[in-house]
Simulated assay, not measured.
Amino acid sequence: MNKKEVTVHLETITPLWTGDAWQENSKVRPSSLMGSLRFWFSVYWKAVKNGNNEKLNNNNVVVDNLGELENPKEVRTLKQIFLKRLLREGDNKSFDNILDESLEDLGLSVPSRLFGCTGWKSRVDIEISSFIKQELNFKEIDFNFPFKENGINTEHWIKSVLFQRKDSKIVLHKDVKLLLKTTEYWWDNYLSGFFNFYKDKIIFVGGKLSFGFGLVNIRVEGEQNDKEANIKGIKYNDIMRIHKIEKIKYDNRKKVLGYNFKYFLRREEEMRYRKRNFGEQGAASSIYVSNLIENDDYHVYLINFNNPFDNKKVPDKIFNKYQKLLFNHLKSRGDRNG
């Protein structure tokens, strides 16, 4: 087995949050990043490659179990299948190749073969190489924008979810670099195409996504080919639609969380569609908005993620409506016709 190590950069558009139940987010948790990579690989494998995927329970937790697939009475254990293949094909195929095909014979999904499940260890490991720590203070946040004319204030909701400590600060992380370890077989056959597909796209990493955290670009150092960058027939918009609203008029110089923009859109939506598009307690949303980002000007990203595992898709006309709502509410009057 030829080992493979690659350096992966998570270039943050908005800082990410990987904290625990005590809101102590002093370091980046590898388990959180691994969970995010697994999820986006599963999205890629299902929506792009049209491959078999893990079995999930009602809480979207993986329940694949290698032991349940093995049947000694039918001579169907992994060890038996692997040894037969090894004797027959060992001179022509690598150990990992034979192992992968043996797991396929048993019906174990590719995401579970790569990232593990009950009875099977992950073929992927990650180590955190570096990250930039950033503090966000409760006093630095604007809770009124963009609601100034109607008096809405989101302080209560943001404080109750994010700022539970007495010091009224949370720790976020920027520009995370990690070392991914696997073997050449798993990299060449699965992971290289996965990273290549997402390299010019936005994904979510970590937690508190509804607050506008965790929007990142993935970049892999070194060798990457483009053989799967533009897969014929694949429309990224079927998975995720992204619209950037630029030149926002804002004068306060405080931080505005994506929660405010999402809350604004949710209030503007008809009651019967709110849960479907924005989720309910314990359920994921289909609509996300980034924090207010300041580079050369203020801008935000409006994102619609159509999760292929729940078949809940936001129609084009609804996403376009949200674009117009934010555009008309956030941009200066002189720019609205531009």
Rank of each mutant, 00 (worst) to 15 (best):
F261S: 01
K199D: 06
Q164W: 10
S32P: 14
P15G: 00
F319E: 13
S26A: 12
S102C: 15
D310E: 15
Q224F: 03
Y198I: 05
T183V: 04
R123W: 02
G334C: 14
K4Y: 15
K148N: 09
N337Y: 08
F309L: 15
L16C: 01
W120L: 03
T12H: 02
K148Y: 10
E155N: 13
I98C: 02
E11D: 12
I245R: 04
L69Y: 13
L56I: 03
R267E: 14
W120P: 05
K84M: 03
G90C: 13
T14N: 00
L69G: 13
Y185F: 05
F95D: 02
R88F: 09
K227W: 04
I231R: 02
K331N: 11
Y44A: 08
K27R: 07
N137H: 05
T183L: 00
G207Q: 07
Y298C: 01
F95C: 10
N196P: 06
K321P: 05
I239F: 09
I231N: 01
S160W: 09
N92S: 14
S168R: 02
W186Y: 15
M34V: 15
Y250Q: 10
F197I: 00
N150G: 01
Y236C: 02
N65W: 09
S332N: 13
E268K: 14
G19F: 01
E268G: 05
F145R: 01
L108A: 08
S168P: 12
Y198Q: 04
G206K: 01
G35S: 08
S94Y: 05
K93G: 07
Q23L: 04
N2D: 09
F115I: 13
V300I: 14
Y44V: 10
N150P: 04
R241K: 05
R29I: 04
V176G: 00
E104I: 08
Y250T: 03
D175M: 00
F211P: 03
N196L: 03
R276S: 12
A229L: 09
Y298N: 03
R266F: 13
S286W: 06
L108F: 10
D125V: 10
N277R: 02
I98R: 01
D100S: 07
H9P: 08
V256M: 12
P30L: 02
I170N: 00
N25Q: 14
G233Y: 03
K159Y: 08
S130F: 02
N60Q: 08
G258V: 03
E24G: 11
I158C: 03
H156T: 04
T182M: 08
D167K: 10
V48P: 12
